[in-house]
Amino acid sequence: MVTGTALEAELRRLAGSVPDPELPVLTLEELGVLRGVQMIGPGRVEVELTPTYTGCPAIEAMTADIERILHEHGMAEVSVVTVLSPPWSTDDISAEGRRKLAEFGIAPPRPGAMGGPVPLTLTVRCPHCGSAETELLSRFSSTACKALRRCVTCREPFDHFKEL
């Protein structure tokens, strides 16, 4: 029999392995939105999730996916609660998550979103050809969390996961 904490760690691993519904290359763990998993009774588990953006509709799909996977692993009652504080930041995306984003054709957010003006001066590299010569087309792209840019070198447009 597994102990409570080992079970919690296993459930966290399962919940964290759920793919992001909008960016299926990333898991919720890599996205950094999973805040905690606690047993609150026999067969009852509470999961804390934080949204990337306040209005992000993906949170409902994430909740349903977490409930499903934990039900499948014997949890009779799964409650997913949304927490806002501390606010999610793109700095919460893991190094592996950033690597996968770039591989998927999305320029990853620059580090240091929390701290002042530095990120604004760093270059966003083209995820296709690696060129540093890129320009902003629109501050908002296919989702609120991305900006639309274009590579001056290879001429390809691409999404940039903007710093938050």
Partner: peptide, 16 residues
């Protein structure tokens, strides 16, 4: 692009 931008801003506000 502007249509998408305004819709994204609207979505942020709806979340608030």
């Amino acid at each position: 692009e502007e249509e998408v931008a305004l819709a994204n801003i609207a979505l942020d506000l709806l979340g608030q």
